[in-house]
């Protein structure tokens, strides 16, 4: 792990990268220990000294434990589901450890939040870290501070992770977008209907004499003690073309915002669509994959 630049996971925390300092409480206890030490030394009170030194031993051990709780920790990878700008992305960090040790009470802090977790030494652990997003495009999570004050909060040990992984931030969909440009213009949109014969099995219904024999669902009929027929639905499919140049909005960001809303609406309605962003054209197609491709293109556009 390089300290000064982002690096790709997997990253392992080496001993040089662990910093450690007493917490506020740690300093308070140090003060208390000093008072105990002075008192016991002055009165030459050996049991008092022993108590003081036990506290000192506790402090020393908790320093070591905090340090060892971090050292050798491995960050395997970071992923994040894309979100729309303005939403909080959840950076999913997967961690494990090299030595099969359990590591309790760890925390990861980003600019925007903190989340705690334990490693049990056997399984991988995933942690979600909130990241606030402001604008579309690729968001770099920046340095992540992984910290712990295990076991009794006297010392805080921390190390920096700087994953090179970035988070895709989709544009924010427009609140009240204009209606989808269905059939508008000469090639702005057209509708085709496509009859697929028996591809799309829809449901079972009671058998009617006019149904062909091969439509009878024998197995299901047996279960239901009645003749059932498979019903297929012919799918009527629309297609729209969504063009950046023709989007009714002022300013690039607003247009992209409207396009985002449209793309999502088209996906919800199950329409085929094409996205034209100047030189880049995606589609026509439908489905999740297509939606993701379009949203990504919109997020990256002009950046």
């Amino acid at each position: 792990m390089k300290r000064r630049a982002p690096a790709n996971p997997p990253l392992t925390i080496q001993y040089r990268q662990v910093f450690i300092l007493p917490t506020r409480f740690g300093w308070t206890l140090a003060l208390l220990m000093f008072a105990m030490l002075m008192g016991s030394l002055n009165f030459n009170n050996n049991l008092g000294l022993l108590t003081t030194f036990i506290v000192a031993g506790l402090a020393l051990n908790s320093m070591l434990m905090a340090y060892h709780n971090l050292r050798g920790l491995r960050l395997l990878h970071c992923t994040a589901k894309p979100v729309h700008a303005g939403d909080t992305a959840r950076l999913v960090v997967t961690l494990s450890d090299q030595d099969g040790r359990s590591r309790p009470a760890l925390e990861i802090r980003s600019h925007d939040g903190l989340s705690g977790f334990d490693l049990d030494g056997i399984n991988l652990e995933t942690v979600e870290i909130p990241l606030r997003t402001h604008q579309r495009g690729w968001l770099s999570p920046g340095r992540l501070r992984i910290q712990t004050s295990h076991p009794i909060g006297l010392f805080e040990a921390w190390a920096w992770f700087w994953p090179a992984q970035r988070v895709l931030v989709w544009p924010r969909p427009a609140e009240n977008p204009p209606p989808l440009p269905r059939g508008a213009g000469d090639d702005g949109g057209r509708q085709i209907s496509r009859q697929t014969d028996s591809d799309n099995f829809h449901s079972l219904r009671n058998w009617r004499p006019e149904d062909p024999v091969h439509r009878i669902a024998w197995k299901a009929s047996q279960r239901h003690q009645a003749l059932l027929a498979r019903e297929f639905r012919a799918e009527v499919s629309e297609q729209v073309v969504l063009d950046l140049a023709r989007t009714p909005a002022s300013g690039l960001e607003q247009r992209i915002s409207v396009l985002t809303a449209w793309v999502m609406q088209a996906h919800r309605e199950g329409i085929d669509w094409t996205l034209n962003l100047g030189k880049q054209s995606i589609g026509p197609a439908h489905g999740e994959r297509h939606l993701n491709a379009c949203l990504r293109a919109l997020a990256e556009f002009g950046q």
Binding site: L41, N44, N46, L49, L50, F53, I54, V55, A56, G57, L58, L60, N61, S62, P151, I152
Partner: peptide
């Protein structure tokens, strides 16, 4: 945690200048 603190405590106890 306490037992682990003992060795340190004993070293300090016997070697801390009086």
């Amino acid at each position: 945690l306490l037992v682990m603190a003992l060795p340190v405590a004993l070293i300090l106890f016997f070697l801390f200048p009086r």
